[in-house]
């Protein structure tokens, strides 16, 4: 019994020190990581909204029910909200496809950007082509998404369509009027 307590205490000591060290490292790196995340999306957002002069992160609590939506941003111009951008994760053929969908306040998709994907080189990765991405521009949030999939890359195309659908869903239910 005594030995068990001793062993437990030693393990506790080691894990406590480990936890402390990790806490320190986390407090040093967390802000940098978050800044980087905004910066990464900012570039794409600027291409969606040329008038953008400010952006802020939307509180995660607003879209907790939506599994596929990872982050949301409000986009401002001269102090007025001009649109929203959502980061979504969907399953493609070769792994997760992380992408952004920009929707303006008029309820129109203004653009999509693929942040990361692991689709088959030469087949699925055509979802990154401008030709494919432009097929989504101008979609009305109240209408159907009618985008042709790329032959030979049906799974990858559908994953992107699903991402746009999820973004529109959040836009309509949480932020739409």
């Amino acid at each position: 019994m005594r030995e068990m307590i001793k062993l437990g205490l030693i393990l506790l000591l080691i894990t406590a020190v480990a936890g402390l060290v990790l806490g320190i490292v986390n407090s040093m790196t967390a802000d940098i990581i978050e800044e980087r995340l905004i910066a990464e999306s900012l570039e794409a957002m600027e291409s969606f909204f040329p008038d953008l002069d400010d952006a802020s992160i939307i509180d995660e609590a607003e879209f907790l029910d939506y599994d596929r939506v990872e982050e949301g941003f409000e986009v401002f111009s001269n102090g007025d909200v001009i649109g929203y951008t959502f980061k979504t994760n969907t399953n493609g053929y070769g792994g997760t496809i992380e992408m952004l969908t920009g929707i303006n306040v008029e309820g129109e998709v203004v653009g999509i950007a693929i942040l990361s994907q692991a689709e088959t080189p030469g087949l699925g990765d055509v979802i990154e082509s401008d030709d494919f991405k432009e097929r989504f521009v101008g979609i009305d949030v109240d209408g159907e998404i009618d985008v042709d999939t790329i032959s030979g890359a049906t799974v990858s195309s559908n994953a992107v369509i699903q991402g746009v659908e999820s973004a529109i869903e959040v836009y309509l239910e949480v932020f739409g009027n």
Binding site: V21, V25, T29, I32
Partner: peptide, 28 residues
């Protein structure tokens, strides 16, 4: 480290360094 619980101790130490490395790589 007592011989009886050496493996959990090793794993805690290793996991700590891995998590640290991950955070630092993510930031820098």
């Amino acid at each position: 480290i007592p011989n009886k619980i050496r493996i959990p101790c090793f794993i805690v130490v290793i996991a700590t360094f891995v998590t640290m490395t991950g955070m630092i790589m993510n930031a820098y």
